[in-house]
Write a protein that binds this DNA or RNA. Sequence first.
DNA 1: ACTATATAGTTCTATACAGAACCAAATGCA
DNA 2: TGCATTTGGTTCTGTATAGAACTATATAGT
Lengths: 151, 151
Amino acid sequence: MHESVMSDYFRLFNEIGIIEQLSRTMLEARLPPGFVAAQFTVLNHLVRVGDGRTPLAIAQAFQVPKNSMTHSLSVLEREGLIEVRKNPQDGRSKLVYITDSGRTLRQRIIDSFAPDIARIADGFPHEHVVRLLPHLEELRKFLDADRDARN
Amino acid sequence: MHESVMSDYFRLFNEIGIIEQLSRTMLEARLPPGFVAAQFTVLNHLVRVGDGRTPLAIAQAFQVPKNSMTHSLSVLEREGLIEVRKNPQDGRSKLVYITDSGRTLRQRIIDSFAPDIARIADGFPHEHVVRLLPHLEELRKFLDADRDARN
DNA sequence: ACTATATAGTTCTATACAGAACCAAATGCA
DNA sequence: TGCATTTGGTTCTGTATAGAACTATATAGT
């Protein structure tokens, strides 16, 4: 493996890390005080892919440790944005539902984020995003699979 | 702005967030216990772009808050991996230098990471990386500039 | 059925992270 | 020169995050 090839992969992950940092900061600037990106993304996930999922499934969707997800969910529950019920199919497990107030807040946040997206779309057009997405998805899926293979 | 366009940007940042999470976890598995990705990336940065930089410059390179950088640097200094000297040009400021032991550790980590990269390169070939990098760089630079414009 | 193992989630703990307020040196400007 | 503002960095504080160990339920193998 050539040094320069290695360093391209490092640069790739480095760029991704910086973009993650920047986009997270931008998002958090629009969130209610004390609210953090991870909590919003969970809320968003529940709307996009549907609720009634287990905490573990959600943790896996974002590839975060399950104890981190326990924490995020407990915050969302404390704020009345989700409901956590026991899973009738499995006594070990729970199911997560978004509440009306969670749904409303999510929509409010998305609306308030629109101007930011509009500005980004000016400098980084939608076609670019469309071209980028499949490749990133491919990379993500591969890393996912590779991780599973390792564990 | 159409709902679907918005949601593509959300998906973009979401994919990036997951990849960041996965690559960070993978990297941290190779780091000495207690060592965290942020600390390695600083070490790596000092070698790649050269040391003798100010903490603020480094914070800006990664777009993290300067107090976060203060923390990372203090850990690296405590471990003897960097040296922080006062800047003779500016009494407010400091300059960060990597030590021999920091350089050595960084190389050790990179070497130990090689098999992971090799595996990734199998599933996600180098050409893909080369094609992706300029677009990500463009996005990162735009977000950078936009952020500065906002502040 | 009985034991071993795997799975879902929580708790405990230590560290990272980031906002806010702060201090000190530097710069701008009257 | 003197005062206001800006800049570089740290401190203080509260929250997020994640490893490790734990509990409880479920599943597999015999």
